[in-house]
Amino acid sequence: MENDDINLTVNATNTNAATGGNALDEGRVGTNGLQTKGVHVWFGKHHVLEDISLDFPANSVTGLIGPSGCGKSTFLRVLNRMHEFIPGAAMAGEVFLDGEEIYGPKVDVTAMRLKVGMVFQKPNPFPSMTIAENVLAGLKLANIKVQDKDSLLEECLTRAGLWKEVKDRLKLSGSSLSGGQQQRLCIARALAVKPKVLLMDEPCSALDPASTLKVEETIVQLSADMTIVVVTHNMQQAARVSDFCAFFLSDGGPGQVVEADRTSVIFSSPSDQRTADYVQGRFG
């Protein structure tokens, strides 16, 4: 299978990726969640991603795995148009959120990003704001008025698994927290604007093992009512937190999706030899 049809559309019976596409969510109906169709990305003249069609079902965790430089993080940015801030970046193809094109001519990008939140590799709380202000920063940025800020604050910090640790020091600066706490603060901040999708770009790569575990627990809990896409280099993490996995690979040319399936399938019986080699740590 080269770059022929890697469509991960609803297909309950076909398990052969090469001939039709994988069923990520068997029997799922409608257009909930996030879908991409034929996404290409270029940096200047450099073609970095080729024909990526993936389906991220609602209320699931999808892991994007693959060696460095294969375009996973770039692809993640395409999902909420953050790649548009990279000079020279251009994309082709379509991205749908609950059936609506996010690249449509009438789409308000800032409003779209309220629905598709993002957590970055390096924790990036706003240092000039307190912990509480950080969590509520998105509301302020988007001019959203909330009746009960205190309960929203508690709810977001609780969902991010941070409430117990910071409830007595909400007035302290966000940068007074440890790296792991800062990352969970960033997750809480992303949750405050009630996104439907949360994109996470190697959220644990700068964290120690204990903090990593906490963030992973948070991811699993959040997936009960939101769609999560997480880029990770850590195979164990992908196995622990994700329901589905997409394996990205670049053979010198643009990055492509080699295989996408249920995580259990990717790790136990992948259909492509390269996937098997990668998840077993034989390269990358």
Partner: peptide, 13 residues
């Protein structure tokens, strides 16, 4: 830049 990105990703203009 990472904080500016964070602000954009939160739906900031």
């Amino acid at each position: 830049q990472d904080q500016i990105s964070a602000a954009y990703a939160l739906g900031g203009s």
